[in-house]
Amino acid sequence: MAAPGSVQVEVKQPMGTGPAGQQWMAMPQINVPGIPPGLEYLTQIDQLLMHQQIELFEALTNIECKNRYAIKNSLGQQVFFAFEESDFCHRICCGAQRGFLMHIVDNQSREVIRLERPFKCFAGCCWCADTECCSMEIQIQSPPGQVVGYCRQIGSKWKPMYEVLDANKSVVLKINGPCCACQTICCTGDVDFKVCGTDGVTEVGKISKQWGGFFREIITQADNFSCSFPMDLDVRMKANMIGATFLIDYMFFEQKDNNS
């Protein structure tokens, strides 16, 4: 996989992606200095819905494809479109643990957010996550090349736990996961990851893996998420919450065993 700084991405017009006739959210007419270009949308949003697109080739062959997501507001209007860039061998050999870049574009085809998750061979176990080499992490850039924050796994006895950091790696939010982060045909409720303040107790938001229906969950790995946060949260932290949602998706719900 190419180094993130050297990747040249040709962002194609996303208007043809997703369901035909999908309505896009209009650009808010605001003039607030310091907001990264494209994040103006997030000033008027307190919830995002992330719908992974079904890949028929993957469903039929069980060969891992690059993931694509429509990111919508609570009214169903599309805000962003996200698509993965990863190495074929990484997807086949490393599965959900693969390293990747996630490019997030708006309705003007501008790449407004870039996510980078490095490949770590021995990462993911919550018991060892206090060690940097064993902790899953994702970096959030907006605009691409400008780091605005991170989300990283932290050590815990059983439940998955994360910290959301700003660009200086200061903890701003904490995420507490459930004891069992999976869904089956006998357990179809949403799987909630609570977003809390720095005390780890005061709940300020939530990341939820939603049940997508029998066919979608059993036959495919296409997942639906919702991500809620305070309306007045800084837009950079909202972008970091998007990154946290993708990290959780790949760690727990891209595994084939969790969709069966």
Rank of each mutant, 00 (worst) to 15 (best):
A2S: 11
A2Y: 08
V7S: 10
E10W: 09
K12E: 15
P14V: 08
P14M: 11
M15K: 15
G16N: 14
G18D: 08
P19Q: 09
Q22M: 13
M25I: 07
M27P: 03
P28F: 03
I30T: 09
N31Y: 08
G34D: 12
P36Q: 04
P36V: 00
L39R: 04
E40P: 05
Y41D: 02
I45S: 01
D46W: 00
Q47L: 09
M50I: 15
M50V: 15
M50K: 06
H51S: 11
H51P: 02
E55Q: 13
E55I: 05
F57P: 06
T61Y: 07
N62Q: 13
C65A: 13
I71H: 00
N73Y: 03
G76Y: 08
G76F: 07
G76C: 08
F81H: 02
A82W: 00
F83M: 10
E85W: 09
E85Y: 11
R91N: 11
C93W: 07
A96L: 05
R98S: 09
R98D: 05
G99N: 06
G99D: 07
Q108C: 07
S109A: 15
I113F: 03
R117Q: 15
R117L: 12
R117W: 08
A123T: 06
C126M: 10
W127L: 14
A129Y: 04
A129C: 12
A129K: 05
E132Q: 12
S142I: 03
Q146D: 11
Q146T: 14
V148W: 01
Y150Q: 05
C151W: 00
R152C: 10
R152T: 11
Q153R: 07
Q153K: 08
Q153M: 13
I154M: 08
G155H: 01
K157N: 11
W158C: 13
M161D: 06
N168E: 14
N168P: 04
K169T: 10
S170P: 00
V171K: 06
V171Y: 01
K174G: 01
N176D: 13
G177I: 00
C179A: 11
Q183Y: 05
Q183W: 03
T188M: 13
G189A: 10
G189Y: 06
V191F: 04
K194V: 14
V195S: 04
G197R: 08
V201R: 11
G205Y: 02
I207M: 08
S208W: 04
G212M: 06
G212W: 04
I218V: 15
I219W: 11
Q221P: 03
S228A: 13
A239I: 01
A239F: 01
M241A: 02
I242N: 01
A244Y: 02
L247V: 09
E254D: 15
E254G: 02
Q255Y: 03
